[in-house]
Each structure stands twice: as C-alpha cells, then as structure tokens.
C-alpha cells in the first residue's frame, strides 16, 4: 500500500474533543477565573497593609528569637493536658462512633429510620468545627479540660463514623452470606462476618483521628476548653513573643511525634 492509498483508506484526523466540548471546557475555565476575581473584589481587601507585610513578618520573627527556653517548665503541664484531652476525646469517640457507623451503613442498618438517624448524627457532628463544639461544651460543663474532651469527641464521631460506615458498605457480601447461612444471629454476623473485614480501616481511622485531635486540642484553650491554647492565647495578647515561640516549637514537637506514631501504626496494620 502506497502512502496515498493508505491515506485514502484510513482517516488522517483524530480529535479527542468535539468543537462543542472544547468550547464547554474553555467556558468552565473562564467561569472559574471570573468567580475568583469576583470573590477577591467583594472582600474589599485593604491592599495598603500588604505593602510592608514582609517587614512586619521579619519584625515578628526577630521578636520571637531567642525563645525564652525556661518557659518550657511552665508549659509542660498544659502540654501534657493537651495530649490527654486528645487521647481521652478519641477514646470516647471510639465508643460512640462504632455503633453509629453500623446504623449509618446501608447494609447493616436495621431499617430506613435507623439509617437516617445514623447519617443525621454523622452530618451534625461534622458540620460543627471543634472550636465551636468547644464554645458549646464550655457553656455546658464550664471551662476546663472536660469541655475540651467532649468537643474533641463530638467532632471526631462524625469523622470516624463516616469513614467506618463507608468501609462497612464496601465489605464482601459473600462472607456475611456464608456466616448467615450457618444460622448465626444478627450480632454474630456483625462480629464474625463484618467487623474482621473493616478492622484495619477502623484502627487506621482512629489513629489518624487521634493525630488530628492532638493538633486541634492545641487551640481549644482559646475558648477556655483546656490545654495549652489558653497560655498561647494570653502570651499572644501580651505580645510575649519569646514565650509564643517556645510554645510553637513544643507543639511542633508533639505533632511531629503523633504523626510518626500514627504513620507507624497505620503501616503495620494488615
């Protein structure tokens, strides 16, 4: 076959998108740029302050160094309290999140009403930020770590519950069918047929959430819910930047450790 014959026999033009599709793609792009520009306009940002932003930042860093290292003895207690708030909050999360996950998964929930209740709890928990939960629980329990623990738990139930429910919905139906076929009760099917299949996801999610909770509990003190946050807040208000830098370094340290722990645990789960 000569090249001419070949060209006659097979098409020489191929395009991934039709002209109409190309137009739509450009329209989306222009639309997104428009939305971004419009939002910036609406915010009425005082650009004037940006002119010396780099000088302000340099000034702040200069005030932070050298860190006032002795301050560490003052924050060690609140720092440990912060970790306790995150850990206890996560423990409470586990107790509540697992039953709710079974209600919120379509394949394990008893009926449509229980499914709705499960989903509602998960959405309600996730739609409120931990700090806002903190404000609510400070009003209920008064200021202190108790409010912090419950606000951590209230927010984490939605996170752990949702991810667990999703993994329950993806389990192998054949396995539960086989357990049902032995004459096992509903609870036995959950325990032997369902839970072993989702256990790695449950462990992984809980450890990951604990890691997030350590970070979140460092700011709970801003609203009076215990931990190192209250000291951070007061040092910032007093412009005691040498103290602030010590606290930031300490928080960086525990977050780093918690992330290492969480990564190691998640890697070892099979």
């Amino acid at each position: 076959m000569t090249p001419e014959e070949h060209a006659r026999k097979y098409p020489q033009v191929w395009e991934r998108f039709t002209p109409r599709e190309t137009l739509v793609r450009y329209a989306w792009f222009i639309g997104i740029v428009f939305v971004a520009v419009w939002s910036l306009n609406r915010l009425e940002i005082p650009w004037f302050y940006f002119l010396d932003a780099h000088e302000q930042a340099a000034d702040l860093v200069a005030r932070m160094v050298p860190p006032y290292w002795e301050f560490f003895y003052d924050i060690a207690g609140p720092l440990i309290e912060t970790i306790h708030i995150a850990t206890l909050g996560t423990v409470i999360t586990v107790v509540f999140a697992l039953p709710i996950a079974f209600l919120a998964a379509r394949n394990t929930t008893p009926n449509a009403a229980t499914w709705f209740i499960g989903r509602f709890i998960l959405v309600a928990s996730r739609s409120v930020n931990t700090v806002v939960w903190g404000l609510i629980f400070v009003a209920v329990f008064g200021p202190g770590p108790m409010a912090g623990i419950w606000s951590i738990a209230a927010r984490s139930v939605g996170f752990v519950g949702k991810l667990t429910a999703e993994s329950i919905e993806e389990i192998d139906r054949g396995t539960t069918e086989a357990i049902e076929a032995t004459g096992a009760s509903r609870l036995q099917v959950l325990m032997i047929g369902v839970i072993p299949q989702v256990l790695p996801v449950i462990y992984g999610t809980i450890v990951y959430r604990w890691d997030i909770n350590i970070r979140e509990s460092t700011v709970l003190g801003f609203v009076g819910a215990g931990g190192i946050g209250i000291m951070l807040y007061s040092s910032i208000n007093q412009f005691a930047w040498h103290e602030v830098s010590v606290m930031l370094i300490a928080i960086f340290g525990i977050v780093l450790v918690s992330e290492l722990v969480s990564a190691t645990v998640r890697k070892r789960i099979t």
Binding site: D172, G174, T175, E177, A178, I179, A181, T182, G183, A184, S185, Q188, I192, G193, P196, Q197, L199, P200
Partner: peptide, 27 residues
C-alpha cells in the same frame, strides 16, 4: 441443619482457619 459451600469460598479472610471452621457452630 444446612451446610453451604460457595464458589468464592466466602471465608472471613482476616480470621484464622480454625476461626473459620468453628464459625460453622455459630448457631
């Protein structure tokens, strides 16, 4: 009173052989 055997075996993959065999007594 009815034992069932499946094409895809349908074992609980993350449990041991013994746990799987004994699950026949769950009833």
């Amino acid at each position: 009173r009815m034992g069932m055997i499946f094409q895809e075996y349908n074992l609980v993959e993350r449990l041991t052989v013994m746990e799987n065999v004994l699950s026949g007594r769950l009833g």
